[in-house]
């Protein structure tokens, strides 16, 4: 393809090709500080392309393709090329990765122990992880958390955090402007702005961490903590995993172990400060 770049996030080496320069330039800016293992063959390929040659210029719209494709996925305008690239990268991991159990969850770590936050979009899991990652936690990822079936450890996938709507202002108030990507206004998912994880989070991205706490956050309503049984946590995590079935028995064993060894809670919280306090409190209790 005309333009391309390579990015390593956690264990995945991406090759991203594009018919336009802009999305590649934007990616290279966001991922400038990530280790570029240039000689390593790619695990996953993403393609950003124009459906017809003239659409590179005329009302350019970016189709997302690659090793795995979602039929009927709508293209995005070129101004949202960066979002298309991120969606393409997520798609390849969600559909193609087989080495680890993939949980649609954010995660943060402290002292070698991980808190895994699993929830639908809108649950605030990304925002909570991003905010904690600006404090004394290491951000592991805002979208995917990987579980190693052999050891039961959690592995990081610290792509650039995708901040949405209100979360943009909340984070922008706390971080250096140089760590924020361009504002993508009015995307199908609302306003989006990417946050580059802190250098320590990127430097530590290959270090495995013991899961210490499983949280299922729900944004809104009174502060509440509900202990969750092993069975329910198991069911919810199979639903949050894109490759649980494909892993076969190792996936079953890893998930069984995860819910047995890790205390799980559903939490509700009215605002980010309350949510962060809940995470700190439950983490302290889990480690006692």
């Amino acid at each position: 393809m005309r333009h391309s770049t390579r990015i390593a996030v956690g264990p995945v080496q991406f090759r991203i090709g594009s018919d336009w320069r802009a999305p590649i330039a934007a990616l290279e800016k966001l991922y400038a500080a990530y280790p570029g293992e240039d000689a390593r063959p790619a695990d996953a390929t993403v393609r950003l392309f124009a459906a017809r040659p003239w659409r590179r210029w005329l009302r350019p719209s970016v189709h997302i393709g690659g090793d795995f494709v979602v039929p009927d996925a709508l293209p995005l305008p070129l101004s949202m090329g960066l979002l298309a690239a991120e969606m393409g990268m997520n798609l390849q991991v969600a559909l193609g990765w087989r080495r680890h159990m993939l949980l649609h969850a954010s995660a943060v770590a402290k002292d070698g122990c991980a808190v895994i936050l699993s929830g639908e979009s809108g649950s605030g899991k990304s925002t909570l992880a991003a905010l904690l990652g600006e404090g004394d936690w290491r951000l592991m990822g805002d979208e995917f958390t990987l579980i190693d079936p052999a050891t039961g450890d959690a592995l990081a996938f610290p792509r650039a955090v995708s901040l949405k709507n209100e979360a943009i202002g909340e984070i922008a108030a706390r971080v250096d402007a140089g760590r924020l990507g361009p504002l993508l206004a009015g995307t199908p998912k609302g306003d989006i702005r990417h946050l580059i994880p802190r250098a320590d989070a990127v430097a530590a991205m290959h270090e495995p961490v013991r899961p210490a706490l499983l949280l299922f956050p729900r944004f809104g309503g009174e502060t509440a903590i509900e202990p969750m049984g092993e069975g329910e946590a198991f069911v919810r995590l199979t639903e949050a995993s894109t490759n649980y079935i494909a892993l076969g028995e190792p996936g079953f064993a890893a998930l069984t172990r995860l819910v047995r060894e890790t205390p799980a809670f559903g939490i509700s919280y009215p605002d980010s400060a309350a949510g962060m306090a809940l995470v700190e409190q439950l983490f302290a209790e889990a480690r006692r």
């Binding site: 080496q13 390593r40 063959p41 695990d43 990765w97 087989r98 080495r99 494909a246 892993l247 076969g248 190792p250």
Partner: peptide, 18 residues
């Protein structure tokens, strides 16, 4: 290359499940 070795091992395991 090492990364190809591991990726191929993943593929064989997934194919056995399928």
């Amino acid at each position: 290359p090492p990364s190809v070795t591991t990726l191929f091992a993943d593929q064989r395991a997934a194919a056995a499940v399928a």
